[in-house]
């Protein structure tokens, strides 16, 4: 990891001093021990702040979209001859690169507007698992060495193997390298157990419908509709989200459980073939809603029904914006056979 970090800073410095990019979106050390936080680097000197470690959680694709989108909007008010391009450099792991591919597929910006600094990724630490390790106590100091995490709280020292604290989505990740990169650094990270990717989905599918509904209801009852999942999701970028739309008002503003269920259902449904399983929504959810169980199903369906894996190929259109003449039709109601 050390040399990746060094290389990353060098590359970022070079890009910024050569004015190849206007800003580098990356991670810096967080204010608390064992954390990292997204940051925006605009000068070559600042590149020393960049870090790359298993505490870098958030999918940076969101910021790339936001920065470029804001820039495009601002340029509309500029005389055509004075318009300029903005180029964003972005520290990119596997899932982030897939988000960028999705945004590029959906023509949100041009390929020249991003410079992708590809880094290998072996997964990130799930804050909730870390907090469970320390029994919810505040971490005063922490370190990561040779794949072992140690966290010191007021009452003692806690230790764990890094792999035990990795987020669920990282454990079954099949994209340890970015799918798209301008500059790649470091050696490939150790692969995860990708063959177990849909294990939880299959297990859930085999439960009786009533149990599945009860689980869905229970999980959605936790949701306070803070929309953090939507705000952090790189695939959620509508200017006006249905959740806030008032004409028509899709989602009631009251506390009725069905409104929350509908909000989550619809947000998740938007992710058919667009969810890269980066786990950002799960990481930011303050209520610990098990979103992944449902999102993973959509991912598996998109693959099963349309042979589409989210954000893998630039040329491939979004699955719900395309069709094949021989798409599956087994769900079509036939009045003769009954169902």
């Amino acid at each position: 990891m050390e040399n990746v970090e060094k290389k990353l800073r060098e590359e970022a410095k070079r890009l910024l001093s050569e004015k190849k990019v206007d800003v580098v979106v990356g991670y810096e050390a967080g204010t608390l021990p064992l954390t990292a936080t997204p940051c925006f680097i605009t000068t070559p000197e600042e590149t020393e702040r960049l870090v790359w470690n298993p505490f870098c959680v958030q999918n940076l694709g969101k910021f790339v979209h936001d920065l470029l989108n804001q820039h495009h909007e601002a340029q509309k008010r500029v005389k055509p001859e004075a318009r300029r391009k903005k180029v964003v450099g972005v520290v990119t792991r596997g899932c982030t690169s897939r988000s960028l591919v999705i945004q590029l597929q959906e023509k949100q910006y041009e390929r020249e507007e991003v410079v992708i600094l590809g880094v290998p990724c072996g997964g990130y630490v799930d804050r909730k698992k870390l907090s469970a390790l320390t029994g919810g106590e505040e971490i005063r100091e922490g370190s990561l060495q040779d794949g072992r995490i140690s966290a010191r709280t007021w009452n003692g020292e806690h230790q764990a193997v890094l792999k035990e604290l990795l987020a669920d989505n990282c454990l079954t990740c099949r994209f340890n390298r970015p799918v798209l990169a301008d500059i790649e650094m470091g050696e490939a990270a150790t692969a995860a157990e990708a063959e177990r990717e849909y294990e939880a989905v299959r297990a859930f599918e085999n439960l009786p419908a009533e149990e599945r509904w009860a689980y869905f209801e229970k999980e959605m009852a936790k949701c306070i509709r803070c929309c953090a999942c939507r705000n952090v999701c790189p695939s959620c970028y509508c200017r006006i989200c249905f959740a806030e739309q008032s004409q028509p008002q899709w989602i009631g503003i009251g506390s009725d459980p069905s409104d929350t269920q509908l909000f989550q259902l619809m947000r998740m449904y938007h992710m058919v073939g667009r969810c890269v399983d980066c786990g950002s929504c799960v990481a930011v959810c303050p209520m610990g809603v098990d979103l992944r169980k449902f999102l993973k199903k959509l991912d598996s369906d998109a693959f099963e029904l349309f042979g589409h894996r989210a954000g893998v190929a630039l040329e491939e259109p979004a699955p719900l914006g395309a069709y094949r003449e021989n798409d599956r039709e087994d769900f079509i109601f036939d009045p003769k056979s009954g169902a």
Partner: peptide, 8 residues
């Protein structure tokens, strides 16, 4: 498919 998955 998704609706059946959640138990509808």
């Amino acid at each position: 498919r998704f609706l059946s998955y959640i138990g509808l």
